[in-house]
């Protein structure tokens, strides 16, 4: 398995994990709210419609980091290709 394949595989895993989080976000938020202390939970529930904002914020955050990691990976891909090219040239060179 080459490095780029490994990276592609890892990215696919991350993407599906992100998707899973997206699907599970609402139940997770509900679960998180229930674990808050009981007396604040009631007041909080009455005043807040901010759930979507929190979900959006955390999704956006991981999306941004994900985009950066993707750009890193694509740069790495280019670099790997260049290394292979260099190795080939070196082989040609020594064969001469």
């Amino acid at each position: 398995m080459t490095t780029s394949n490994r990276i592609r595989h890892a990215l696919r895993t991350v993407a599906s994990a992100l998707f899973a989080v997206a699907v599970l976000a609402d139940p997770l938020v509900a679960l998180a709210q229930e674990t808050g202390t009981a007396e604040t939970w009631k007041t909080a529930r009455n005043t807040v419609q901010g759930d979507t904002l929190v979900v959006a914020a955390y999704m956006a955050m991981w999306f941004i980091i994900g985009v950066y990691v993707l750009s890193l990976a694509s740069k790495q891909k280019v670099q790997d290709r260049e290394i292979r090219e260099l190795e080939k040239q070196l082989d040609d060179h020594s064969a001469k």
Partner: peptide, 9 residues
């Protein structure tokens, strides 16, 4: 815990 004035957000 959930903050009292701002809530979950």
């Amino acid at each position: 815990p959930i903050e009292a004035t701002m809530g979950f957000v």
